[in-house]
Write a protein that binds this DNA or RNA. Sequence first.
DNA 1: AACACAATCAACCGCAAGAAC
DNA 2: TGTTCTTGCGGTTGATTGTGT
Length: 320
Amino acid sequence: MGRAPCCDKATVKRGPWSPEEDAMLKAYIEERGTGNNWIALPHKIGLKRCGKSCRLRWLNYLRPNIKHGDFTPEEDSTICKLYISIGSRWSIIAAQLPGRTDNDVKNYWNTKLKKRLLGGRRKDRGAGTQQHRQGELDGANDGGEQQPLSASAMERIQLCMQLQEMQNPLSSISNHNNPLHLWQPSSHHQVAATHSNNSNNNSNSSRSSSFDVTVAAEQGQSSSLNDQNLGGQQQMETTATMDGLASPSSAGNSNIVTIEAELQELLYSATTTTTDSVVTQQGGVDWWSYEQGRSPVNCWDFTPETSSVLQDYTSVVYDM
DNA sequence: AACACAATCAACCGCAAGAAC
DNA sequence: TGTTCTTGCGGTTGATTGTGT
């Protein structure tokens, strides 16, 4: 027995929004607000649209202060930093970029940033069309005299992405998109994974760090994960579990463990050498330290290692 | 000029979480 | 306490636009 659809697809209009529809939605919300009920909103306005569609249209396009157009180098840098650290948590990443939406950031990463970063490094992967496409990217990237990412930087990004790709057939083990999720064994996540045994590969079970991007963007300020956004209990739980990382073997898959070990080595070795710096850390990068009173984003005292990744990244992207 | 292919991005989908009842 | 409803999220799709041949 499936879940009831949120609206009647036979009677609801789909596809691109017309200027008239945009105007109606915008005028109504600006005058009366959403009424905290997106489902009822289209009926009130007289739009033949699904409530979810209205919400998406408002958040991604009609909302005030939405920024369209090219991303700045600073924004690129922020996206890259956050992706390397927390993975595809687009709403969180977007919240750090006033005026940008998660959809925008996601599209931008998938269509541009990712290719800029990895385009020239994956010749041995795939076949057929994929290889053909990659070859074109390789050509684009290898042709110039651009400075490559340092091995460490590239490796980290690639491993993160590789790990993400491998998560797909293993959703029952880890269906969280955070590349580092495998050794992020909070009970919260374990429970979530259990609940999603029947979910498809795309599901994202963890909402432990969700927060109100809409409010943040509408306020025109950077948001953070704080006690309001992350329940106190969850926060303590996360902090506690991060004190003792689970054994990688708990993931139960040798392939995952192999990559995990590589990542562990990269991230948690006492001394990490890059082409740019030697980094000594106490226990490695504390990716998920949700300390009391500090948001995981705001507490982003980027390590020198991360900075080196970014320096590499920036030089590659903007020297092109 | 016509076609094929690639890139982009708005919109959709399905899921989980949490609120409401 | 269990069920239903709504919201928010990330992944994916597909129409449109751009580019190369």
